[in-house]
Write a protein that binds this DNA or RNA. Structure first.
Lengths: 231, 231
DNA sequence: ACAAAAGTGTTTTCTATACACCCATGG
DNA sequence: CCATGGGTGTATAGAAAACACTTTTGT
């Protein structure tokens, strides 16, 4: 290894970054950390950090997320690798970006190590971001919108039990447009990924709605098969 | 930079690899090189190599492709980054894989630098591949199949002028199933991405067919808009 | 009783698919 | 004249989209 290093003399460092989305109170939010150290000290950034030599990339993302934010991710996929020569003022740093989904209600987020602070930011109210993280986040949002139209992603974002209107709101929020309630219900019902429970829940006013939960087995079978539906 | 390097002591090397597809004589082929040096000396591999410190990732792929194979690529997109700790026997080497399309007729392929030999291999007659390149190639083939169903990719693979049957054969080849000629013609015609020329060409026997060419402007407009059709 | 949200079917339109015969050429 | 591949239209079925009123609850 040292031999290659010497021959190559390749001074490139490798990091991972994660764009983790959550859904709460009718908003899609993304998990950001305030940087404790230079460069971009005090600015908000995607959680992430340097990959260790003996860990896989996914392990690196999961470790950094847990260290910096306290979040243990339940859905993670690779997004894109950012390698422009000038993207990091410290030198050549290539970053493998990941896309994650999490149920925000499950975790208490707590800053640690390189992070001075952690917070969920609604994707339409983002602060200025460090490095090229705005670019990464833009791509992640596009991925989220794309994914939701051909794969069900509710399972990863909603609580175990939820009223149907939550799922509907999730879709209108992510897609940024109204969808027809009856047609949507029909489509989801046909997929048979939801089990209706006997419980009902009221959100203060109006008629209470039945609670649903995902039929995990059917859900993951469908996901494995690939393209499932179009909203 | 040296400071970070010392603090980090991160001995990870970065390479790029390219899965470049071409279409010729009714076959989808992929460009492979025979390795001149260890490890995997004498085995076939995807063209690629170490990223230089002062070049972007795309530049690295294009450079390596040109150096090793003589091919100047006209379509290139990032595929996936492979970073398992054990994927390279020399140590920790992370590789950013790219997906490329090229018209094989345009280039004379010629091996150089790290490549002892270059050749096009039909994707259904692949030799044993070095590293995890088989895995990479499998993903690249899936990407090709996925792409062709929701984006026209004929422009990048076919000659400037071609009979309609060439486009049809390309689709049946990539998708691995027959498609209905009339329905396919209808769909493509509706997209208005083809201009029919006055010339006709015969391939020896049978009725000669009109030549077509892609209407570049319309073609790239449609691609920019995203999902276009389903075959 | 009224405001607010949940729940529910039918009709219409569009798109995908299935399907078969004639045409132009070379040998 | 025959073998080969090119070229073309219609009918059917299924999916998506448009569309509005009733029900249940809290105040």
């Amino acid at each position: 290894m040292l031999l290659i290093r010497n021959v190559m003399n390749q001074n490139i460092l490798l990091t991972v970054d994660a764009a983790v989305f959550g859904y709460e109170h009718g908003h899609i939010s993304v998990l950001l950390v305030k940087r404790k150290y230079a460069p971009f000290k005090g600015e908000w950034a995607l959680p992430g950090g340097f990959v260790l030599e003996n860990e896989n990339l996914e392990e690196a993302v999961e470790r950094e997320l847990l260290e910096e934010t306290g979040v243990k991710i339940n859905y993670l996929e690779q997004l894109y690798t950012y390698g422009d020569t000038m993207r990091d003022p410290r030198g050549r740093v290539v970053s493998v970006a990941y896309f994650g989904l999490v149920k925000p209600t499950v975790f208490k987020i707590t800053a640690a190590t390189d992070a001075e602070q952690v917070a969920w930011f609604p994707v339409n109210k983002l602060p200025k971001l460090a490095f090229d993280h705005k670019t990464i986040l833009n791509m992640a949002v596009k991925r989220l919108q794309g994914k939701i139209t051909y794969e069900p992603i509710g399972f990863e974002l909603l609580d175990k039990k939820f009223p149907f209107s939550d799922l509907e709101k999730l879709y209108t929020t992510v897609l940024g447009r109204e969808i027809d309630r009856r047609n949507f219900k029909k489509k989801i019902t046909n997929l048979k990924i939801l089990d209706e429970l006997d419980e009902k829940v009221s959100n203060g006013r109006g008629r209470p709605g039945s609670l649903f939960q995902f039929n995990e087995q059917r859900y993951f079978e469908l996901k494995k098969e690939g393209i499932i539906f179009e909203i």
